[in-house]
Each structure stands twice: as structure tokens, then as C-alpha cells.
Amino acid sequence: MTISSPVLRNSMRLILPLMLLYALYAMLKGHNEPGGGFIGGMIMATAICTYRMSHGFAAQLRLMPVHPRVLIFLGLGLALGTSTVPLLLGEPFLRSAVGVFHLPFSGHAFHYASAMAFDLGVMLVVVGVGVGMITQLSEELE
């Protein structure tokens, strides 16, 4: 389904990069500020779906050239992988590691938590599910 509204088309062109950028930002900063995998995923899925509404399926394919189920697969695999790695190190399932990582040139301290990889998995799944469902249903409609 495509909505042929010039207002939506043109505004979407402006909004889309912002939304995608903000989705990534929300995901990456989610541990310390409002955001996280679920939110980032929802924002990204909404952005892609709205873009599809305004520009059509072909445009969506250019933006995201894989079937959404690949994202679901990758996301679930990443989340499961991050949760099982501690098992190999003799720690309980899902235990996260926290630490500080000094960037090599600037010397900035970079706080990281291994839970971020888990969050990335969550985000991929949410994007895959959201986009996948809407895609499937609009394909049905067309």
C-alpha cells in the first residue's frame, strides 16, 4: 500500500535519516539515557514502515535489502550468543561484563557493558518483527 501524498513523500525524505540516526543513538546510549534495544527497534521499524507507505516497496528494498526474517534470525542468534558466552567462561547464563575501554588515539574513556550486544540483538529482532509483519500484510493487500 502506498499513499501518494506529496507532503508525506517529501517530509519522509527529511525525517527518515533523522529517525534512523536517532534509533541507533537510542540503542547505543540506552544503557545510560532513555532508550535501549526495544525502543531503538521500534523507532527503526516505524521509520522503515512509514517510508514504505510513502515511497513503496521498491524503496524499502533499497533501504533494507534483506528479508526481515534474516534480521530476526541474526538478532535472536546474537542475543542467545551473548547470553551463552558467560557459560563458556564458567559464569552463570546471561552474566554481563562491565568495564572501561580506552580509545587508542584520543585517550577517551569508553564505558562498555557486554549487555549492549544483547541489546543489539533485541533491536534486530524488534525491527525484523515490526517490518516483517507490516510487509507481509501489505503484500497481501497489494
Binding site: G36, F38, I39, G41, M42, V126, V129, G130, M133, I134, Q136, L137, E140
Partner: peptide, 20 residues
């Protein structure tokens, strides 16, 4: 609630697909 919202979306989509 955060997780409930996201799950709610998936359940809703599934329910509506069944409806169709």
C-alpha cells in the same frame, strides 16, 4: 510495561492476520 507494549504489538499483528 515496556516489554508488554512490544509484545502487545506482535500479538495484535498476529490476531489481525488471523482475522484477515
Amino acid at each position: 510495561i515496556l516489554t508488554a507494549i512490544v509484545i502487545g504489538f506482535a500479538v495484535m499483528a498476529f490476531l489481525l492476520s488471523l482475522l484477515v
